[in-house]
């Protein structure tokens, strides 16, 4: 347990594959980004449901910033985010490992040379 209540033999196994769009009562899913302090980037904090941006902002404040977690909030409809496909990760990101010359540590600098 704790949060896995023991399964009874008669427990139904509901069909969990939800049909339709990812909306709750017709509300959009929003992604929440928080800027922890001035001078830092907004960082993804989580998501929530809201009918519009204004209510999404209010809810984000209540749900994600109850303890001074930030000084600024962004809310973005999840459907507006285009993301890379996990299956493409190798073709997208692996080639960088073949280009170690992009890294400063690739180059040997003579000991007697300074400020390089």
């Amino acid at each position: 347990m704790t949060y896995s209540v023991p399964r009874l033999p008669e427990e139904p196994d509901p069909d969990l594959r939800s049909k339709g769009s990812r909306r709750v009562s017709g509300w959009l899913l929003w992604e929440v980004f928080i800027r922890p302090r001035r001078g830092l980037h907004h960082v993804h904090a989580g998501s929530l449901h809201a009918p519009d941006g204004e209510i999404a902002l209010q809810s984000a404040r209540d749900v994600y910033t109850r303890r001074g977690e930030g000084v600024s909030l962004w809310v973005v409809p999840s459907s507006e985010i285009t993301s890379s496909d996990a299956a493409d990760a190798a073709s997208l990101f692996d080639p960088t490992s073949e280009k170690p010359f992009r890294d400063a540590t690739f180059y040997q600098v003579p000991d007697e040379v300074e400020w390089l």
């Binding site: 347990m1 209540v5 939800s18 990812r22 709750v24 009562s25 989580g46 929530l48 749900v63």
Partner: peptide
């Protein structure tokens, strides 16, 4: 809310979870 969001990433909607709770098909800690 954090946890419903985490569950939603697995492809179930919040409406569905609420419905299952209300119908007694999903439990909560005793």
């Amino acid at each position: 809310l954090y946890l419903y969001s985490a569950a939603e990433t697995l492809g179930i909607t919040r409406d569905e979870m609420v419905r299952l709770l209300h119908e007694g098909k999903q439990k909560y800690s005793s």
